[in-house]
Simulated scan of single mutants.
Amino acid sequence: MADVAAMAGVSSQTVSRVANNRSNVEEETRQRVLSAMRVLGYRPNAAARALVTDQFRTLGLISFGLGNFGNARTVDSITRAAQRAGYTVNMLAIESQTEQAVHEAFGQLTMQAVDGIVLIEAQILDTPALRLPSGVPVVLADGDVSHRHPMVDTDQALGARLVTRHLLDLGHETVWHVAGPEDSYAARRRAESWHATLKEAGAPIPRMLFGDWSAASGYAAGRVLAEQPGVTAVFAANDQMALGVMRAFIQAGRRIPEDVSIAGFDDLDESAYFSPPLTTVRQDFDVLAERIVSLMLDQIRGGTAPSATAPIAPHLIIRESTAAPPD
């Protein structure tokens, strides 16, 4: 630090302020110090800085499985949002949604000296008796309907309503649904909204089929649906399952969208290149992540966070996989 200060022509205190990203440094001085840091290969000592600031500038992240596109995109967006705020991320992906697994994950992350912990779609939080360990700020991405902890959520119900209503407005008598796993918060919200939208419209409510978010499970459900001539519209709870449904109908000789309309949820990067391009619901993962990190930083800095914020509205993306039903 003394070498950096000498090269930049400033005091060691100024170098410290730049290293800790403080605002009370003129921009020209900051750039001079940063240039000296690069030349000398200086790196702030995180442990020493933590002793002074009582902050490690590290967030813990617990995800219950990364096979789900939504969870993976949420992790990616949170990591980038944290980096923009000057924080790194330590992540644990765990499959078992038990109280013991959650407490063990908290223990591992707190031993790694994190300032706060984000949980992504923790279905275990629906257990009324569950209490998360105290002593570290927590923010949830989906999954705490009782609002015991600060939470940021995409409006899953709105997304499902938009796509179901779109298919009904095209003239389909009803809409079949391939739901996600029964233990998924997001899947339940989408399925409940699909059901409510059909009921409000006075449309028949077909039997719901379940998948596991994979294209293979969508294909299995699609084979069942393709055997029923009366099926003219299908809403799959994510784009991967929609892809499997599409393949099953095409193999059965059913044209998309001339004979059957198919829609998904998430708007994968590849969805615009399905054959035909897929109508779907786009979630804004970047806005979700920014709100999560903002809530976390508010708590780290000593403030309080609301138990819930307004859900983030998704958008219906209409493409060539949906059309009016056959005459």
Rank of each mutant, 00 (worst) to 15 (best):
residue 1 M to K: 11
residue 1 M to G: 15
residue 4 V to H: 08
residue 5 A to L: 08
residue 5 A to E: 09
residue 6 A to T: 12
residue 10 V to Q: 07
residue 11 S to H: 09
residue 17 R to L: 14
residue 20 N to T: 14
residue 20 N to S: 15
residue 21 N to T: 02
residue 21 N to I: 00
residue 22 R to I: 04
residue 22 R to F: 11
residue 26 E to S: 14
residue 28 E to L: 06
residue 29 T to F: 05
residue 30 R to D: 01
residue 32 R to F: 04
residue 35 S to L: 02
residue 36 A to Y: 02
residue 38 R to L: 10
residue 42 Y to D: 09
residue 44 P to N: 07
residue 44 P to E: 09
residue 45 N to C: 08
residue 48 A to C: 10
residue 51 L to K: 08
residue 54 D to W: 00
residue 58 T to Y: 02
residue 59 L to P: 04
residue 63 S to G: 10
residue 64 F to Y: 15
residue 65 G to L: 11
residue 65 G to V: 09
residue 65 G to C: 12
residue 66 L to A: 14
residue 66 L to C: 07
residue 71 N to F: 10
residue 72 A to D: 11
residue 73 R to K: 14
residue 74 T to D: 03
residue 78 I to E: 01
residue 80 R to K: 14
residue 85 A to H: 10
residue 90 N to G: 02
residue 90 N to H: 11
residue 98 T to F: 03
residue 98 T to P: 03
residue 99 E to P: 01
residue 100 Q to L: 06
residue 101 A to V: 00
residue 107 G to T: 07
residue 109 L to V: 05
residue 110 T to H: 00
residue 112 Q to K: 15
residue 113 A to H: 15
residue 118 V to P: 03
residue 120 I to D: 02
residue 121 E to I: 00
residue 123 Q to E: 14
residue 124 I to Y: 02
residue 127 T to C: 02
residue 128 P to C: 03
residue 140 L to T: 04
residue 141 A to C: 15
residue 143 G to P: 10
residue 143 G to K: 06
residue 146 S to H: 13
residue 146 S to K: 11
residue 151 M to T: 14
residue 153 D to P: 00
residue 156 Q to D: 15
residue 160 A to S: 15
residue 166 H to I: 02
residue 174 T to E: 07
residue 178 V to Q: 01
residue 178 V to P: 03
residue 182 E to M: 03
residue 185 Y to I: 07
residue 186 A to L: 11
residue 189 R to A: 13
residue 190 R to D: 03
residue 190 R to H: 05
residue 199 K to R: 13
residue 200 E to C: 04
residue 201 A to F: 05
residue 203 A to D: 09
residue 204 P to C: 10
residue 204 P to K: 05
residue 206 P to M: 09
residue 206 P to V: 07
residue 208 M to N: 01
residue 208 M to C: 15
residue 208 M to L: 15
residue 212 D to T: 01
residue 214 S to T: 15
residue 217 S to N: 06
residue 218 G to E: 05
residue 220 A to H: 13
residue 221 A to R: 02
residue 222 G to P: 08
residue 224 V to Y: 10
residue 227 E to N: 13
residue 228 Q to G: 00
residue 228 Q to V: 14
residue 231 V to F: 02
residue 233 A to Q: 04
residue 233 A to G: 06
residue 234 V to T: 10
residue 236 A to K: 05
residue 240 Q to N: 14
residue 240 Q to W: 05
residue 241 M to R: 03
residue 248 A to P: 07
residue 254 R to C: 09
residue 258 E to D: 15
residue 261 S to N: 11
residue 262 I to K: 04
residue 264 G to A: 09
residue 264 G to P: 12
residue 265 F to M: 07
residue 266 D to I: 03
residue 267 D to N: 15
residue 268 L to R: 04
residue 276 P to M: 06
residue 279 T to C: 08
residue 282 R to A: 12
residue 285 F to L: 05
residue 285 F to N: 01
residue 288 L to F: 07
residue 289 A to L: 10
residue 292 I to C: 01
residue 292 I to G: 03
residue 296 M to Q: 11
residue 302 G to L: 08
residue 306 P to H: 06
residue 316 L to M: 08
residue 319 R to P: 09
residue 321 S to G: 12
